[in-house]
Design a protein around this nucleic acid. Sequence first.
DNA 1: GTCTATACCTGGATAGAC
DNA 2: GTCTATCCAGGTATAGAC
Lengths: 195, 195
Amino acid sequence: MKDKTTRDLIVEAADQLFYQQGYEHTSFANIADAVKISRGNFYYHFKTKDEILDAVIAARLVNTQKMLDQWEVEGQEPIDRIRCFIRILIANQTKIMSYGCPVGTLCNELAKLNHASKDQASMLFTLFRNWLGGQFSLLGCNTEADAMAMHLLARSQGVATLANAFHDEIFIQQEVQQMCDWVELCKERASPKVV
Amino acid sequence: MKDKTTRDLIVEAADQLFYQQGYEHTSFANIADAVKISRGNFYYHFKTKDEILDAVIAARLVNTQKMLDQWEVEGQEPIDRIRCFIRILIANQTKIMSYGCPVGTLCNELAKLNHASKDQASMLFTLFRNWLGGQFSLLGCNTEADAMAMHLLARSQGVATLANAFHDEIFIQQEVQQMCDWVELCKERASPKVV
DNA sequence: GTCTATACCTGGATAGAC
DNA sequence: GTCTATCCAGGTATAGAC
């Protein structure tokens, strides 16, 4: 269970490099160097570059789902769980300022390439969307739960894009605070405290 | 004043292609085809691909400034002008759903390439930021004007990213409406109507 | 200013030895 | 399963004729 196969190592390295350099800009040589295997060996594990991309997306889907499951445990109330989501902007702020959001930037790139796997990449967003939608439902925002999930997802995406462009972590923190306030407000509107 | 030079045509074609396909994915051959000149001729006008990128960014800066100046004329009140900004999401929704925001996606790509011109590309955001900041100041939100500009910029970026991933124009329209409502609220808070 | 031809390199992909 | 050697396409860039 502990030692990773070469295939796993390739996927892991590719995942990182695709994030940091972009899919197209990352060559087999780059990945091979990172894993410390020869380029030829590569093709034993993956026949094409597209196959690696698919494997990377699949791995991200699994890891994302795990993270969501984890938040389900960590956050007692729906509002706490939503805050877990918002706070990834803080937790990952250094990376975000350098490379943007891993999901958003990948979707952007694949859309421009009109790549066959672009819809698969969007599934990463769908995972967050559905999970957030579920939390907003639990919060009492039944009819608008999905719209609110999309709204929050969009705001966090925008923050990542601008934080990347301006390298501004104060901005991230301000916006995170505002998003938390907004969720709080949503909750109160959905089930007003009886005073 | 009317006939465009070959250089202008190259910049125009490159601008479009960089937007639709991304900078890296666009080859000289692509641009040459679009302009209907030979690849060789290319190098008479630009020595390297980076030079074309710089020219494209410079052109976008000029065009963006023109657009902002235009909004200054079109919108009587600051709030009308800010609405001009918000509504580009609607005006360009088809393109946005296919290729995302031209500014955000370019900045993302150049950041990953760690390209020398990435800061120049971010200047496009700065143009919007400062202009919006000016409008929010006029609206009466003096101390927070810049933060509000950044907030609105971020929200529109996020909307573009998700609209691209989900190809959802209803979502764009809903979010545009919410942004307009938010600006309205900002205005009222800054200078409350005396009833 | 525009063209053709071409040099040169990188990157994806294959073949076959070990 | 991993390696070396190699092929081939495509992309940047140059030279030089017109």
